[in-house]
């Protein structure tokens, strides 16, 4: 009896300690980045052009790449996941497809970069541009989106589908009006994971988007994302000031990610609320 109670307490302790560890590491990294950046990071730094010592072009390029690649991969990924879970059944062809998708998720990103460079930049003639990079990255994040969306769809109870179908709705109505809205939370998670990967990716971006330091006017121009900029800053850093700028860029990167995720969550909540309205 005593032993069981002790074990219970011990396990609780271990789990609480793990959580503390995670929070501590995360907190330390953030504090470290922003303390190092303190001297260089300012409003002006983020919103000035490169010539004036700012990183506005990189912020803009990063946002462009994220928005375009999500806009390409999210509809395709959700469509694929819906087909796989709702329509295709469980034939051997579908099982092979699933294995293929999982394999796709495990391929190192530099290989996607190489493919993107040859396919989109050269063969399709986009050159090094945001659109070429976005296509490359959307292929890279498709498996993530498909898998997470599939899990989200599977977690929607069968009784919802039955309830909807029993009212005389068609299958696609049931999917679009009941199943997908109920899976929205999971789908948003998949989008956030995908955004995280896009923002953090460097090798394929370097190959397909390029290095241009100008503010891109259209998606057919080259640009330099924050990660690539950070890479070059760190490589070329000689005196402590340069590191300050690198860390300021890193801090901006973190803020961009947090901003995008928060915005996504807010939009989701807005959508959910509008679903709950009678209007």
């Amino acid at each position: 009896m005593k032993k069981r109670v002790f074990l219970d307490g011990l396990l609780y302790g271990i789990m609480a300690l793990s959580l503390c560890g995670v929070i501590a590491v995360l907190g330390y990294i953030l504090v470290y980045i922003f303390r190092q950046a303190a001297g260089s990071l300012s409003f002006g730094f983020i919103f000035r052009s490169a010539r004036e010592g700012g990183i506005l072009p990189m912020v803009v390029t990063t946002l462009y790449v994220v928005v375009v690649s999500i806009a390409i991969s999210l509809p395709v990924g959700i469509g694929t996941a819906v087909f796989l879970t709702e329509y295709s059944g469980n034939s051997s062809l579908v099982r092979i497809l699933r294995v293929a998708i999982e394999t796709l998720a495990g391929i190192p990103s530099i290989i996607y970069g190489l493919f993107g460079l040859l396919m989109f930049c050269r063969f399709l003639g986009f050159g090094q541009s945001i659109i070429a990079g976005a296509f490359t990255l959307s292929i890279m994040i498709l498996p993530v989106i498909i898998r997470t969306t599939e899990e989200a769809l599977k977690s929607v109870p069968v009784s919802f589908r039955e309830g909807s179908l029993s009212l005389g709705t068609t299958k696609s109505q049931t999917i679009f009006h009941v199943v997908l809205p109920s899976a929205l939370g999971g789908i948003v998670t998949s989008a956030i994971l995908a955004i995280g990967r896009v923002v953090g990716e460097s090798a394929p971006v370097l190959l397909t988007v390029g290095l241009s330091r100008n503010i891109p006017r259209t998606v057919f121009e080259s640009g330099r994302t924050l990660t690539i900029h950070l890479y070059y800053l760190t490589n070329e850093a000689v005196n402590p000031d340069d590191f300050g700028i690198a860390f300021a860029t890193a801090g901006t990167l973190v803020m961009v990610v947090v901003a995008i995720n928060t915005l996504t969550k807010i939009l989701t909540r807005k959508f959910k609320n509008s679903q709950g309205d009678a209007s």
């Binding site: 039955e162 009212l167 709705t169």
Partner: peptide, 14 residues
């Protein structure tokens, strides 16, 4: 098995 919508929308759905 009501849907995750408002009371009104549940009834109006069909």
């Amino acid at each position: 098995n009501p849907f995750a919508m408002s009371v009104f929308d549940n009834v109006a759905y069909g």
